Simulated assay, not measured.
Amino acid sequence: MSQAELSRGLNAGLNRRGRAVLELTTEPATAMLANEVEHVSKSRRRNDLLRWQAAGLLLPLGVFGILEVVVQNGWIARNLLPAPSDVFESLWQLAGGDLWKHIGASGLRVLAGFVLGAVLAIVLGAAVGFSRRLEALLEPSFQGLRAIPSLAWVPLLLLWLGIDESPKIALIAIGAFFPVYVNVVSGVHNVDRRWVELGKVYGFSRIGLVRRVILPASLPQLFTGLRSGLSLAWMFMVAAELIAASKGLGYLLTDGRETSRPDLVLVAILVLAILGKLTDEALRYLEIACVGTRDTLGNTR
C-alpha cells in the first residue's frame, strides 16, 4: 500500500471517528438545549398567566369601586342596589351569627344530592354507552326528562316526599344527574375501539371492560360532566330551598326578599358564587390528580 493510500485511509478513519464523537457530544447537548428552551417557554407562559389572573382579580374590585361611587352619590337608590360596603358589612355581621349554619345546611344538601346523582349517572351512563340495545331503550326517555325545567319537579317531589330534606336532595340529584350522564355516554362512545378489543383478548368480562378500560379512558369527559353537574347541583339547591326551607342559602335569599333587604340577597349570591368556585376548583385539582396534565391546546396556551 502506498503512502498516499495509507494517508487517505487514516484520514477517512479519523473522519468517521470524529463524526461519531461529534454526534455523541452534540446529541445530549442538543437535547439539553431543547429542554432548557422548553422550560424557559413554560416559565414565561406561567408568568404571563399569573399576570392575567391578577388582572382577573382586579376586575371585580374595579366593578365594586364603580358601584360604590354610583350608589354613594345617589345615582341608584339603595333600596334597589346597596353599596358594596353595605353588602360586606352585612356579610361580616352574618359571619358572626347564622351564616355558617346556612352554609352548612346548603353544603350538606348539595353533597348528598350530587353524590347520589353522579353515582347513578356514572353507572347508567357506562351501561348505556356500552350497550346499543340499552341506549335505544333508555336514551329517548332520558333526553325527554332532561328537557324538564327544575321548578317543574318541585310540586311532584313535594307531593311524593313531603317538605323535609328528601325532596330537596332528590331535586339536587336530578340536576346533577343529566350533565354527568351525557358526558359519560359521550366519553364511552369516544373510547378507542382497539382498546376494547385488546381488553377482550385479555379475557375481560363486560364489567371488567367497563371498570378497567372504558371508564379510565373516558375520565376527561367524566370530570367535565362532574364539574357541570356540581354547578347545576348548586343551582337546583337554591330552587329547592326557595320552596320550603327554614335554613340554607336559598332560605337566606327568600328572607332578604320578604324583608326588603337587597344587601341580604346579595350576600347570599356572593357566598354562593364563592362556594361554587371553591368546589369547582376542588374537582379540577382532583381531575389533575386522576388524569394528569395532558398535552392539549388548553395546557400550551
Rank of each mutant, 00 (worst) to 15 (best):
L156G: 01
K101W: 07
R133W: 13
A29E: 14
V201T: 15
I274A: 09
G225L: 03
R301D: 08
V188Q: 05
G203I: 11
V69E: 08
D192L: 11
T293Y: 11
S205P: 05
R133V: 11
I76S: 03
S41P: 02
L219V: 04
L57N: 05
F130S: 10
L252T: 10
T224I: 12
L58W: 13
L33N: 14
L219T: 07
L209Q: 02
K200Y: 07
A176T: 12
L275R: 06
G203Q: 13
Q143D: 14
A118Y: 03
E197T: 09
F178M: 05
K277Q: 09
V185D: 07
S141G: 08
V119Q: 02
V196L: 15
R301G: 12
S141E: 06
D98E: 13
S90P: 00
R146Q: 12
L252R: 09
A147I: 05
L116G: 02
I169R: 03
L232K: 03
A112C: 04
F64K: 03
R193C: 07
G104S: 09
L158Q: 04
R17Q: 15
V213H: 03
A77Y: 10
A121K: 01
I214D: 08
L49R: 10
G104L: 13
L61P: 07
G125L: 05
G199R: 13
T254M: 14
R284L: 14
A121V: 02
M32G: 09
R146I: 01
L283V: 11
P220K: 03
G129T: 07
G292W: 13
L215A: 04
R193A: 14
N15V: 11
L219M: 09
A147V: 07
E89V: 00
V123G: 01
N183F: 04
V191P: 06
L270K: 02
N190W: 00
E68C: 00
Y251I: 02
P28T: 13
C290M: 15
T293C: 00
F204V: 09
A176H: 08
K247A: 15
M32I: 15
P167S: 11
L138H: 01
F88A: 07
L270V: 10
A282R: 02
L24I: 12
N47D: 09
G292Y: 12
L137F: 15
L230V: 02
G125R: 05
L232M: 10
R16D: 10
I288T: 11
V70F: 04
L249I: 06
E258H: 04
M32F: 13
E27C: 08
V87A: 10
L94W: 04
S41M: 13
K247R: 15
K247W: 08
S131N: 06
A55N: 05
H189A: 13
S186I: 09
R212G: 00
S131H: 06
T25R: 14
P60A: 11
D263S: 13
A83S: 15
V184A: 10
L209R: 02
W52H: 13
G276W: 01
V188I: 15
G187I: 09
A239C: 14
L116M: 00
V71Y: 05
V128K: 06
A54F: 14
L266K: 03
L151A: 03
V115K: 04
L61G: 08
R146W: 04
